[in-house]
């Protein structure tokens, strides 16, 4: 407030009146926009928290008229598929980012690859599912955790790539020049100087990507489908079986006419949002410490 000189405070002046009027509207808009956002959080805590217990984390989902039950298998399934996605996307994203930031510098290839990555961030998540369906499910003939992981990795790659490129570029050029002056090859500079310095930024990017995909539902709907059992209950071959995930559980249960399932959907949402928020906050703190 105090930075802004406002010489016309008079309520009779039409310009001042207009200014006050618009300020009021903006404040109302901002407050109005925050209400639904906070309502989501409050409802999550109220309706999800009511059902929170240890049973949720080790029990299997209930059948139609059952009481009790939980979603332990969905938590494991989500973690497992996000893990597969990270295994594919992290090396891919970081190696491509190294090229974009350092070796390709301002060449045509780097520019086009960067543009492609930015375009990919805008691809709807359901299309990642469609792709994994065509590329994995139709080829192997079954819904599987692998297909789910592939679908999620498509969403992770561009995010990881762009954030890793940014953090490599933020390394002071004096450090690189010193290493070059000592006779390092570009690869040595990258591994011994740039990557260690850029590491916190790159980890932040990876964690944000992980947080984003762990809540994704659309790509899993028809790649991993859902399962009422633990993954690996029937041995290692289960990697090619339908797999449960928290997000799909929320979606499935939200449409059911049973109070027990709906309560579980709220509890699962609370668990999922808590997971996502924790990853987000940690990665932000990491990034701030680096600055």
């Amino acid at each position: 407030m105090k930075n802004t000189p406002n010489f016309n405070k008079s309520f009779t002046d039409s310009r001042a009146l207009k200014s006050i009027f618009l300020s009021t509207i903006t404040v109302l808009c901002a407050v109005g926009a925050c209400i639904p956002l906070f309502s989501v959080l409050v409802m999550l805590i109220m309706r999800g928290g009511k059902r929170l217990s240890f049973e949720l984390f080790y029990a299997l989902p209930p059948t139609a008229f059952d009481t009790g039950g939980g979603f332990g298998n969905a938590i494991v399934g989500t973690l497992f598929m996000v893990g597969i996605a990270a295994l594919i996307a992290v090396p891919f994203g970081i190696l491509a980012a190294i090229y974009l930031a350092e070796f390709g510098e301002n060449g045509k290839l780097a520019e086009i690859a960067r543009f492609c990555a930015k375009t990919m961030t805008g691809i709807p998540s359901i299309l990642a599912g469609v792709l994994a369906y065509a590329a994995v499910v139709m080829v192997t003939g079954t819904y599987s955790a692998i297909a789910g992981g592939v679908a999620l990795s498509i969403l992770m790659i561009p995010t990881i790539m762009l954030t890793a490129e940014e953090s490599i570029k933020m390394v002071p050029s004096a450090m690189r020049e010193a290493a070059v002056g000592m006779g390092c090859t570009k690869t040595q500079v990258m591994w011994k100087v740039m990557l260690p310095v850029a590491m916190p930024g790159m980890i932040t990017g990876v964690m944000l990507a992980v947080a984003r995909v762990s809540g994704e539902t659309a790509p899993l709907l028809f790649t991993a489908l859902f399962s009422d059992y633990w993954i690996f209950q029937g041995g290692a071959g289960d990697i090619m079986e339908p797999t449960a995930s928290l997000a799909v559980l929320i979606y499935n249960f939200s449409g059911m006419p049973f109070e027990n399932q709906i309560e579980l959907a709220w509890a699962a949402s609370l668990v999922l949002v808590t997971m996502v928020f924790i990853i987000n906050i940690i990665s932000r703190m990491l990034f701030q410490k680096k600055k």
Binding site: S39, L44, S214, I250, Y251, S254, L272, V273
Partner: peptide
């Protein structure tokens, strides 16, 4: 960062 399925539920 809130997943869209949670907004759907809400």
């Amino acid at each position: 960062a809130i997943p869209s399925v949670v907004y759907g539920l809400w």
